[in-house]
């Protein structure tokens, strides 16, 4: 798994894949999708797919892929090496969503929430497999949200494919377990080798589990906070844990859409717009100036 | 710290020590209130200060952040607009001929006397005053007729520049940052004159603006 492309610029998202085995391009395949790193406030979220010919599912099971959450990091690494070695019938692809990308997507003016982001990434990976010539026939997807709606969405997107969306699919379908392992291994490696472009000084390298309810992680967030710039790009700014710390400890920043935020508005009576002003009104500035937002300077 | 765009001449080295560029408050002729102006070195040139001001702006300047996100511009200004303020005041108070250094006196804005040092003041003041010379000394009095003639020239020059720079002057409201492919041929000569009058009115009092409109 060559992660150099992502490691060189971990601000942007990255797609990487194995070569599609010849068998996958000639035989109907089952494809599993899973994610890693949805919950943490630190690091990327990784979506992974793994596929093999339907007829070879038994061979995949023989590699003893299991629910990746029950395995140790070292065990997952070993399993991934076995999957990667089975190049004749197993293929994989990963989409690494950088924490910066997650943060900016979720905080855009036209909000792009995590669910939509997740679904689109999964759809993108299925399409990538199809574009690579893989004869995808069946798709198995793990989900935390409502399975029926997501299944319907995928079926609409890929009407020729048999789609199964189920919670805990990683423990039901070997191809999803395999995808889970690919995603988890990728995330573990990326997080371990994370290069802080911000050149942090005097910051503890131990940030705990990376989960928002971990006191060690919260302490680390507070420690590495810059009052003007906030957190390093390793942090998902859009997570409420991060936002609360920013609100309490960082400098306030106002954007021109802050006015649309109900918490920023103070209710103003309509009548106040018609109230007589106490101060005498002076001639308004010529439109040449106000159209260009130019004002006379009275003080520096 | 402030970020300011200024003509190069502002930063010319002064001929005399301690006479570098000077920011100072003077009476804005349109509002009658204090506004900030800039004299170049040796007070030869006068500049008005404008700020480009959007509400949600700040600066990074070097390794510092600054809340005030205004971008300032210093642009050359004809000092006669400010001299007019005192000529009109003198005319209202007693209507007598006076030397300029007695006209340009203001406790609230003591720097107004520096207008005398501007190169163009002595060269062009005859456009707005009646002059008398007694015993080798010159005396001045505001002339409305001459001033209106001078202001009309300003308006005419402004019209030319507006046309040359394709400034939108017609009645339709549109942000100045919107750039349409269409040439603004809808504007009439009247539109240009009205607009130019309005611009010049930013530099004169309301009475004079009304008189100029009539003229």
């Amino acid at each position: 798994m060559d992660l150099r492309a992502f490691e060189e610029d971990n601000a942007v998202s990255c797609l990487l894949d194995s070569a599609a085995p010849a068998a996958c391009r000639t035989q109907p395949c089952c494809l599993g999708i899973d994610e890693a790193g949805r919950g943490p406030v630190l690091g990327p979220m990784v979506y992974g797919i793994c596929y093999c010919p339907v007829a070879r599912q038994g061979d995949l099971e023989a590699i003893k892929v299991a629910d990746s959450k029950t395995l140790t990091e070292a065990q997952r690494e070993q399993l991934f090496e076995k999957l990667d070695a089975a190049k004749d019938f197993v293929g994989w692809a990963l989409h690494i969503l950088s924490p910066n990308f997650i943060s900016t997507s979720m905080q855009r003016r036209a909000k792009y929430n995590l669910n939509a982001l997740s679904h689109d990434t999964a759809i993108g990976l299925i399409q990538h497999a199809l574009d690579s010539g893989v004869q995808v026939a069946e798709v198995f997807v793990d989900t935390v949200g409502p399975a029926e709606k997501y299944q319907e969405k995928l079926k609409q997107q890929f009407p020729g494919l048999e789609v199964t969306v189920k919670p805990k699919a990683d423990s039901l379908f070997p191809v999803v377990s395999a995808a889970s392992i690919c995603a988890k291994v990728a995330r573990d490696r990326v997080v371990k080798n994370w290069k802080f472009v911000e050149a942090l000084e005097n910051v503890d390298s131990d940030y705990g589990s990376g989960y928002p309810n971990d006191p060690k992680t919260k302490e680390w967030l507070t420690q590495c906070l810059d009052p003007v710039f906030g957190f390093p790009q390793f942090v998902r700014f859009s997570w409420s844990t991060a936002q609360v710390i920013l609100e309490n400890k960082a400098v306030a920043v106002r954007w021109d859409d802050t006015e649309d935020d109900p918490s920023q508005k103070s209710a103003q009576s309509l009548l106040s717009y018609f109230a007589r002003k106490d101060t005498p009104t002076r001639r308004p500035a010529h439109r040449f100036f106000y159209e260009r937002k130019l004002e006379t300077v009275t003080s520096l | 710290q402030w970020v300011m765009v200024v003509p190069e001449s502002v930063t010319d080295l002064p001929k005399k020590p301690n006479s570098g560029p000077l920011f100072t408050r003077l009476c804005n002729p349109s509002t009658g209130q204090a506004a900030l102006y800039l004299f170049s070195s040796d007070s030869r040139q006068l500049f008005e200060l404008k700020a480009f001001h959007e509400e949600y702006r700040s600066w990074f300047i070097g390794q510092a952040v600054q809340q005030d996100g205004r971008l300032f511009f210093a642009t050359p200004m004809d000092p006669l607009f400010l001299v007019l303020v005192y000529l009109i005041k003198s005319e209202k108070e007693h209507g007598k001929f006076q030397p300029l250094d007695q006209i340009l006196v203001d406790e609230e804005f003591p720097s107004c006397s520096m207008l005398l040092q501007c190169t163009s003041t002595s060269r062009t003041i005859h456009h707005i005053v009646e002059e008398k010379e007694i015993g080798g000394k010159k005396f001045y009095k505001f002339s409305e007729e001459k001033t209106l003639k001078w202001l009309k020239k300003k308006v005419d020059q402004t019209v030319k520049v507006l046309k040359c720079h394709d400034v939108r002057v017609d009645a339709r409201v549109q942000t100045a940052t919107f750039i349409s492919g269409k040439q603004f041929t809808d504007a009439t000569e009247d539109d240009y004159i009205r607009y130019a009058h309005g611009l010049i009115s930013e530099y004169i009092n309301e009475d004079l603006s009304t008189a100029l409109a009539k003229y």
Binding site: E198, A199, D226, P227, V228, F229, V251, A252, V253, R254, W255, D256 | V3, E55, Y56, R57, S58, W59, F60, G62, Q63, A64, V65, Q66, Q67, D68, G69, L71
Partner: peptide
């Protein structure tokens, strides 16, 4: 020039968090 109002005057680690780009 930033497209937001930072309600603070003071030091900022600009070179740490910003790299010039064309």
């Amino acid at each position: 020039s930033l497209p937001c109002r930072v309600l603070h005057d003071g030091d900022a680690a600009v070179c740490k968090y910003f790299s010039p780009a064309i």
